[in-house]
Design a binder for these strands. Structure first.
Length: 489
RNA sequence: GCGGAAGUAGCUCACCCGGUAGAGCGACAGCUUCCCAAGCUGUAGGUAGCGAGUUCGAGUCUCGUCUUCCGCUCCA
């Protein structure tokens, strides 16, 4: 029996062997926690994206999409809280190997001083710390720790490393010439796509004449330095999010929060993923922007892990942007409030966010689809690896296989492909025995294999073989497109 | 970041006490094949992660370095 870890290992190997996912820059020994999607993976990923986009925009009456730039004005990240909340200086004790956030370490010591009745010293210490943190003076902070003889609670020693900063966000140079002041040119790669939606809230609302409640959806890359970058594409430095911010009237947040919680789970189940692999996980400890938050967790080979988050963000983001930009982020609501008989008037909308990691969704689909099957009979040992993707998501929808590569069979197969390839992705293969070709298609997750044989020449019928059951039936060539299209609808 | 393990062909691995690299699968080109992998022939593919040391000689021993995996730690 394979352990969970082995299963993830098997999926990683399979993903590489069949062109789904390659480690980034592999010929240079790779780049930690960065991966490339290959010829099969990019198709699967695109199909997941399309399914999400369609369900969140086209099938909704009041949600539109945008595609905001990855680069954003630096003040965006001050407003969002990313600059202050996720740039914590850290320090390690060399003896206990324990890592601390510097502010936590000093605050702990200050509390101790206070408990010992040395209130003045405690306050001085905190004031000194705040001043140094504000200046990013790490050497000064280190001196502060040393001069106060702050000890590690575990080792009891003062044997500290230098202070290092944990940078959540990647920064880069903006503009083609160096400035005399580097800070002027520093710009971040967005750590989440949500802010691209918030800063465009009024643009979309006004130009699209959107009425609350309405949503803005976006798919795009985001970048984060991870402290522990492992677990394959579950945690990557460059990743892709599919987010939707739903703008609502204050006071209605609870019902909309529940609505989107339910609605998003429905989407997952509509793709044919099993309900027992899903569960909700409500957050007890909330992030700085959240009023309520839950995760939709999926049972990956590494256990139940966050796949999607539903957050009730209140008016935090728009209020912050209003404050930092000095531009009103308000909506005028003409609807009549039954309680007062007057319009609701001007307000900053509340927001419910749904945010799913595209790469995590990819891994969820992949790990759910991956199966090693034992097909042995009394006479013969046999097995296959099959990816049971929902047909809608499969990279290749239909393979067309001439039983032999002569007698005009390849020509008939080519004709079938030509008539179908504008509707869905087809694949042609004439090499090797038919059984081998079926198994290769199983390994890629192709739901339908069509085989052209000699009978085809007589009556224009082919066999269609179903991936999951491995059963086949004979149908007319001109029914093929319909069968496949129906399955991927 | 710490501890442990491992890096040889696309993949899985072999090479016993150091003597200038091999198998299976896979790939490719043919042959065969009328429906579920492992039939036949042939071909390609490796300066053994990288660097240094010991040695007449290093995939094999030593050190360093990089990468990966496992555990711990950290984490929005």
């Amino acid at each position: 029996m394979a352990t969970d870890t082995n299963t993830l290992q098997a999926i990683i190997s399979h993903a590489k062997e069949y062109g789904f996912i390659f480690p980034s820059s592999e010929i240079y020994d790779g780049l930690q926690a960065v991966y490339d999607y290959g010829q099969m993976g990019s198709e699967l990923k695109k199909n997941i994206k399309d399914a999400w986009w369609k369900s969140m925009t086209q099938l909704q009456d009041n949600i539109v999409g945008i595609d905001a730039a990855i680069f954003m004005h630096p003040t965006t990240w001050k407003a969002s809280g990313h600059v202050d909340n996720f740039n914590d200086p850290m320090i390690d004790n060399k003896d206990s190997k324990k890592r601390y956030r510097v502010d936590h370490l000093i605050e702990g010591h200050a509390e101790q001083l206070k408990a010992d009745g040395k209130e003045k010293e405690s306050e001085d210490l905190l004031a000194a710390m705040d001043a140094l943190i504000a200046k990013d003076d790490f050497a000064g902070l280190k001196d502060l720790i040393d001069s106060n003889k702050i000890k590690c609670a575990i080792s009891g020693t003062c044997n500290w490393t230098d202070i290092r900063q944990f940078n959540l966000m990647f920064s880069t140079e903006f503009g083609s010439t160096a400035s005399s002041d580097d800070a002027d040119n520093k710009i971040y790669l967005r750590p989440e796509t949500a802010q691209g939606i918030f800063v465009n809230f009024l643009n979309v609302q006004k130009t699209g004449r959107m009425k609350i409640p309405f949503g803005i959806a976006q798919i795009g890359k985001a970048f984060r330095n991870e402290i522990v970058a492992r677990q394959f594409i579950f945690r990557m430095r460059e990743f892709e999010q599919m987010e939707m911010q739903f703008f609502i009237r204050p006071g209605t947040q609870d019902e909309w929060y529940e609505f989107w919680k339910a609605e998003r789970l429905k989407w997952h189940l509509s793709l044919g993923l099993p309900a027992e692999k899903y569960r909700y996980h409500d957050h007890v400890k909330l992030a700085h922007y959240a009023k309520a938050a839950c995760d939709i967790e999926f049972e990956f080979p590494i256990g139940f892990k966050e796949l999607e988050g539903i957050h009730s963000r209140g008016d935090f983001d728009l209020s912050q942007h209003q404050e930092y930009s000095k531009k009103k982020q308000q909506y005028f609501d003409n609807d009549v409030d039954p309680a007062t008989g007057k319009p609701y008037g001007n307000y900053i909308p509340y927001v419910i966010e749904t945010s799913i990691g595209l790469d995590r969704m990819f891994l969820a689909v992949m790990s759910n689809a991956y199966m090693e099957q034992d097909l042995s009979t009394a006479e013969k040992q046999d097995s296959r690896v099959v990816l049971k993707f929902p047909a809608k998501l499969a990279p290749i929808k239909m393979a067309v296989l001439p039983l032999t590569k002569k007698d005009g069979l390849p020509e008939i197969a080519a004709g079938i492909i030509n008539s179908c390839k504008s509707s869905f992705r087809c694949f042609y293969e004439e090499k090797d025995s038919i059984g081998k070709r079926y198994r290769r298609m199983d390994a890629l997750g192709t739901p339908f294999c069509v085989t052209v044989d000699h009978q085809t020449k007589e009556d224009n019928t082919v066999t269609i073989r179903y991936r999951d059951s491995m059963e086949q039936e004979r149908i007319p060539i001109d029914k093929l497109k319909e069968v496949v299209l129906q399955a991927i609808e």
